[in-house]
């Protein structure tokens, strides 16, 4: 069963790496933020599975802290960063398009 869960962990990490393309491409700041949120969920699941594979219950606490702080990044983004970024090209993408 451990080998089986290990394969799932590997697939989830590969999933994150593939998803990095969205951080690369954007186009808007919100898209990049969404990708980061998705990765934080995947990281939580990887930690949960690793806690079972390595039989290390302390990793559940790491996942708990990640889950608790997941809200912080997105709220800071909406409340501080995104409302301040210039609307450059009029479509509200947050002025983060490639030059």
């Amino acid at each position: 069963m451990t080998e089986f869960l290990s394969i799932l962990v590997l697939l989830l990490l590969a999933n994150i790496v593939v998803g990095l393309a969205r951080v690369l491409r954007g186009p808007s700041a919100a898209d990049r933020m969404l990708a980061a949120e998705m990765f934080s969920t995947s990281a939580v699941v990887i930690l949960l599975l690793l806690a079972f594979i390595l039989d290390a219950p302390a990793l559940l606490d790491v996942a708990l802290v990640l889950a608790l702080l997941a809200a912080l990044a997105v709220v800071t983004f909406v409340g501080r960063a995104w409302s301040e970024l210039e609307i450059r090209d009029g479509d509200g993408t947050g002025g983060d398009r490639e030059p």
Partner: peptide, 9 residues
């Protein structure tokens, strides 16, 4: 912004 997101990930 992209730098910051990369740093968070």
């Amino acid at each position: 912004f992209r730098s910051v997101i990369s740093f968070i990930v």
